[in-house]
Design a protein around this nucleic acid. Structure first.
Lengths: 351, 351
DNA sequence: CTGAAAGCGCTTACAG
DNA sequence: CTGAAAGCGCTTACAG
């Protein structure tokens, strides 16, 4: 029996043609098939055409496992997020996926949310990384020392978004500048009774965004000789629900701010709704400014500081891609995505 | 030179121990390492412990590529969505990922959104499926005949969510029942001037959800002797923005409905905001009821028909999992996820 | 420009 | 319970 024939029929019986089937059909060696199909140099044009024809005919697709094993590359990029179902993370993830598929890469979702716990995410482990991913993008993940060591040992290129991973490129917005823009906006309108929503407790340490934004808020007030009243600084767990609850409590008090700077638009929605329920008019009784320009903010008429979330995903992909091809990364690279104030109807002069 | 020693050092120089290194360290064959580590029967307990110790010591993780090539299984599930960044899809995706990782599966995101185009998604191709995925879950994807043929040929188990893929299990809510609940709610409140938002144009054909919901709405009105006025049936592209625009036009007319049934909560937010801007009071001038129970709907006080999106993701995973282990699927299985009316502040008696 | 052959690192019957 | 060996399907120097 011809070994080629037996291989060929075996391939077909499982519904999958192999490179041997294509080679046989095209009358060339498997090495030539491999080169032709991957568009490498030094393949005769006529030969290449014959190979493509045979491959088409047989519905041939190279086995990713076999390619990976032989080449050491998997063609897969992991995207690690703390919550896969929230707007910011879903948007970054999706934009990365759309960018890298043009280069032939697939995206694996590493959703690190821990069932019950909100503070404690799953760790990045060898199981999810080793020999599986060509690169990783972390989105607001405070990577631990042990994890960094692991990733170093595995030699996987990494780009961080939002919260920085030490020694790796970073894509972000200038959180302090964003909070400054928002705060200066209400100060410029003449407000002096100003509160803040979104100061997270210290256990969320490692995440730099909430801390930077609150600090910048405080600085701006101080620069203008306005005191930060701790009773007007709300925590909230960076969700709409929490902001709604906290704002309801605050706005029921006798002493109320005339403006609230809010760390995210989703929280701003909660604040505005609390105000509406209590009959506090926005913006005449209370100005509210957020950060994000969430897709709902336009329709809900929320003043905010816009950030380009899709753009940050694209930028991260753009930085990772060359590293996947072996080019050395600049570990100190920081790509700062543009922001800008968008004045809408939720802010006005006090009174 | 001892071939094992050379292998071992080669492994270490690349930062990756192989199964040979572990076998050498534990003093057993690679076959035994493979069995021990995967928890197969017929391995002596002492041997197993030695193998685990050696594997730990060497930070050994089996190469997924090599395992896949040898076993034919990849441990990866693809989740295909039309828009990875929208709430419904991100939520389903994330819940699937969290469910299947407990069984050792990873999730690959197949975001089929086409850059500029909203109507036309990317096709499912062999490149993304063949020899790469053990199973697929499609979420509101109208799979074409060619795609079904491809998936059949590749022999990949598939579970569909929302829009059905012929001959495959389906997880969904009863869309007609949901729209019925919503519509009957406003009818029961005494409304007779009722409009609908979310009737999509026929080019989105294949997606069953929008059509089923609108049909059920029409049926309920007819059953109650209420006529469907086409001027009060709005299209909108199932986004908040579009619903806002369309509702603004409608509510500016002299002849206005007193209630609107809206195909999704996101659109309902847009409608309510259009009303607010125009000074149309919700619910006294206009009742609005949506479908979904979006995470924002509670705070925004929107009456709606709740569906369990996380639960649908889990159910799809639960159905796919046994099929991955080779168990035959029931191609006619339909898992219908529960729904229920949630009355909030956006609906009331007319006038 | 092309081919033969080694090698990537596992799993899986098959023996024992 | 364990091992030797074949095989999974590619890629990549190495020759020519």
């Amino acid at each position: 029996m011809d070994p080629n024939a037996s291989r060929s029929s075996a391939g077909r019986s499982r519904g999958h043609a192999t490179i041997h089937d294509v080679a046989a059909a095209a009358g060339v060696s498997v090495a030539t098939v491999s080169r032709a199909l991957r568009g490498l140099d030094r393949v005769n044009e006529t030969t290449r055409e014959r190979v493509f024809a045979a491959a088409d005919e047989l519905h041939y697709v190279a086995s990713p496992s076999a390619s990976s094993l032989a080449s050491g590359r998997t063609g897969v990029i992991g995207v690690a997020v703390p919550f896969g179902d929230r707007w910011f993370f879903a948007t970054v993830l999706s934009s990365i996926a759309r960018r890298v598929r043009a280069e032939g890469y697939q995206v694996m979702l590493l959703d690190l949310e821990q069932q019950g716990q909100h503070e404690k995410r799953l760790p990045l482990t060898s199981d999810m990384l080793a020999k599986r991913l060509d690169g990783i993008i972390t989105v607001n993940i405070a990577v631990t020392g042990a994890e960094t060591a692991l990733i170093d040992r595995l030699g996987i290129p990494l780009v961080s978004v939002g919260t920085r991973v030490p020694g790796r490129p970073l894509v972000r917005i200038d959180d302090a500048a964003a909070a400054r823009l928002a705060t200066e906006h209400v100060v410029a309108l003449g407000h002096t009774r100003i509160g803040y929503v979104g100061r997270v407790p210290p256990q969320s340490a490692g995440l730099t965004t909430p801390a930077h934004r609150f600090e910048a808020f405080s600085e701006v007030l101080t620069e203008h000789g306005i005191s930060v009243r701790s009773a007007w600084v709300l925590g909230s767990d960076w969700t709409m629900d929490d902001a709604f609850r906290d704002a309801t409590t605050l706005l029921t008090r006798a002493q109320r701010p005339t403006a609230l700077v809010v760390g995210s638009d989703e929280m701003a929605f909660g604040v505005m709704n609390a105000a509406r329920r209590l009959g506090v008019q926005v913006p005449s009784d209370l100005s509210v400014v957020g950060i994000d320009d969430h897709p709902f903010s336009d329709v809900l008429d929320v003043s905010t500081v816009r950030q380009d979330v899709v753009g940050q995903g694209l930028a991260a992909a753009e930085i990772l891609l060359p590293a996947l091809r072996g080019r050395r990364q600049d570990p100190s690279l920081i790509h700062t995505s543009e922001i800008r104030l968008i004045e809408r109807g939720s802010t006005a002069r006090p009174g």
